[in-house]
């Protein structure tokens, strides 16, 4: 395929991935890799490199908007970033050494799990009661704005959350995705951080986590300019466009469709991995 044609098509695909990721809150990174691998026949390592950079772009680009809402908890985020960045380095280390068809199968499984996580019920029951000694020492307990005014929450199970974050970081570094779904899961389900606080804190953790594996990706040649360029520009413009479109009423429907797309891509990646097409 001529370079011009490839760049334009990849840009267009990335634009829609960024748009849908922003509208549904599921992130666009998760579909970029399957899109490049399955539709354009790109090597999964080049795809992961381009995707990882686009993940940083959306995370850093949205930081200002998120902090304005006053939900994110920088202490929880910073502490857990020790785990996610260490995990990300391990993930990138493994990605360099793993066969592409195995990477494809793992990617497929992660896609299917992400799709299932996207339809789970959100429990809005922040941790309360007696303070957890470790969480108190780490000053993680805080307040967040609700319709009834500021509400305080207490964080629990810090070691378990920390361990899960290491895993989320490893997945991010291994596959070149933000793994936001897993970060949110660790915070709101395990550590009992309110859902809105979990999602906004996860957003800024995603960029820092991705930067930890990006250094290794870059030096290993995963980041190739001709491919990363249209992906980054497409995802960035798509996600910015998403913030301007207000389709709140249809978000639930969109999430379902996007979830099904992710599910289908997951099955396709696993099939491709087993048949040695990746």
């Amino acid at each position: 395929m001529p370079t011009l044609e490839l760049v334009l098509l990849v840009w267009l695909g990335s634009f829609f991935a960024g748009l849908l990721g922003s509208l549904t809150g599921l992130g666009g990174g998760v579909v970029i890799v399957p899109l490049l691998v399955l539709a354009f026949g790109v090597d999964i390592r080049y795809a992961a490199g381009a995707s990882l950079i686009s993940v940083i772009a959306t995370s850093s680009g949205a930081a200002a908007a998120y902090t304005k809402e006053g939900y994110s908890n920088i202490r929880i985020g910073m502490f857990l970033e020790v785990a996610t960045t260490a995990g990300a380095i391990l993930g990138a280390f493994l990605a360099v050494r793993m066969a592409t068809n195995i990477l494809g199968v793992i990617f497929g499984v992660v896609l299917i799990v992400s799709a299932l996580l996207s339809i789970r019920e959100k429990s809005e029951q922040p941790g309360a009661g007696r303070p957890d000694p470790l969480a108190s020492r780490l000053r993680m307990d805080s307040v967040y704005p609700t319709a009834q005014g500021p509400r305080s929450y207490r964080v629990r199970h810090v070691p378990a959350g920390f361990g899960m974050m290491f895993g989320a970081g490893a997945i991010s570094g291994l596959l070149g995705i933000g793994s936001g779904a897993f970060k949110v899961l660790a915070m709101d389900q395990v550590m009992r951080v309110p859902f809105k606080v979990s999602t906004t804190t996860s957003n800024f953790m995603i960029g820092v986590t991705a930067a930890a594996s990006a250094g290794i990706y870059l030096r290993r040649g995963f980041v190739t300019p001709g491919l990363a360029m249209p992906v980054v520009l497409g995802v960035l413009l798509g996600s910015v466009t998403g913030t301007f479109i207000l389709v709140r009423a249809r978000t639930k429907w969109l999430r379902l469709v996007f979830g099904l797309v992710i599910l289908a891509l997951g099955i396709e990646m696993i099939y491709g991995g087993f048949t040695g097409k990746l």
Partner: peptide
Amino acid sequence: GGILYLLQYGHLSAHYSGFNANRAELHA
């Protein structure tokens, strides 16, 4: 850089199907 890239290489064919870590890319 992208616009410049397309002007310089837009007509050539692109290959990303095989990974080549030794290709003299800009890694550092």
